[in-house]
Simulated scan of single mutants.
Amino acid sequence: MTSRRDLFRYAALATAAAALPSIGSAAAPASLGNAIPKAAKPLRILILGGTGFTGPFQVAYALARGHQVTTFNRGRRPIAEWGDRVEQLVGDRTTGDLKSLEGREWDVCIDNPTTLPYWVRDAGQVLKGKVGHYLFISTISVYADGSKGGINEDSPLAKYAGADAMAETRETLMANIEGLYGSLKALSEAEARKQFGDKVTIVRPGYIVGPRDETDRFTYWPKRIAEGGEILVPGDGQDPVQVIDGRDLGEWMIRLAESGTAGVFNACGPDYAMSMDAMVHGCHAVTGGPATFTHVPREFIEKNEVALPIWVPREGSPYSGYGAVSNERAIAAGLSFRPLAETVTDLLAWYRSQTPERQAEVRAGIARDKEAELLKAWHAQA
């Protein structure tokens, strides 16, 4: 089972992805191969971050829609293919260096990487009155109780138990990711409203997957299934799973900016109830090849302290509800989802374009020898 510690470890990996190199051509969403109509009104869009996981998808889609895009980050990963189509400002929110934002105005600001409230406070001090609409990427980890399905945007949020939220740093967060991540995100949301008022959009994704995902938490499954053989599947196959392709999230953020839609939205997918079995068989439909799936009960998984990403049992876990978060409000606001097969196909193509060393470094899931050992032990007692 994906334990509480593992869930926050994956969140930490996603946060740490901001320090990873750019991934080149994966920045362009697959949908750019189709004709994308221009927006009714071009916007001046400021993207804080912009070179991590979902940011490049936002940039590419915004450019295709005819918007003017500015990114602000530390300048460690400039994306060459943008060229002069994107203004790339340099600064560092960890040290409060936002000088390059001063004296400027934008129609929209999208805040991608923030996990600390003081980042929002400092941005607000520079941008207040200078942007018409502020969109903040949060997380479903803000909810106080993730144990039951049906979590909606009005569910209670995690409470901060530290001494001074504005004194928390990246270092203190990473040292206590389990205790701080959700509550600091919740406080960052509150700070966004304090700084930018009613023109704020809060987007709370769950598992973000697809090309550019450096955590491997979803990638483990299509990669493992493509290898074939006997595959350990946790539970009875009926536990619910929710994932959203990073391209669907990024492109929807731009559409929210275009419509000026404010409010709070759970960005979880798909738009139907997907089970663990549906996910693994959906991956297999793409990969093909000989593969068998062996379901192993939760009790055996827990006894052997196995960490399998994405999966959480539908009952009995502090995060059982993470597979059944309500996305009705987001869908009503225009969130749409590409087919799982497209996500898996493009993800595997991206992954296989990485270096052999990177492909050999599995950052989530279990190694093949460990899986074989567990399956042998399960068959021996079954």
Rank of each mutant, 00 (worst) to 15 (best):
D6P: 02
D6K: 11
T15Y: 10
T15S: 10
A19H: 07
A35W: 01
A35I: 01
L46P: 06
P56V: 14
P56C: 13
V59D: 05
A62V: 06
A62Y: 08
L63T: 00
G66L: 11
H67M: 07
R74E: 00
R74I: 02
R76Q: 12
R77E: 13
G83K: 08
V90W: 09
G91E: 12
R93H: 05
T94A: 10
D97W: 03
D97S: 08
S100M: 12
E102F: 06
E102H: 05
Y118P: 00
Y118Q: 11
K130I: 15
K130S: 15
G132C: 04
F136H: 15
S141N: 13
Y143I: 03
Y143D: 10
D145W: 00
S147V: 01
A161F: 04
A161H: 13
A165F: 04
M174K: 15
A175P: 00
I177T: 10
L180N: 10
L184S: 03
I208F: 00
V209K: 00
D213V: 12
A226D: 12
E230G: 02
I231M: 04
I231N: 08
Q238L: 13
D239V: 01
P240Q: 08
V241L: 09
V243R: 00
D245R: 00
I254M: 12
R255T: 12
G263T: 01
P270S: 09
Y272P: 01
S275M: 01
M276C: 06
H284F: 03
T287H: 06
V296Y: 09
R298T: 15
P309I: 03
I310A: 05
V312A: 10
S320C: 07
G321F: 00
N327F: 11
F337S: 04
L340M: 08
A341I: 00
R352V: 01
Q359R: 14
E373C: 07
L375H: 08
A377M: 10
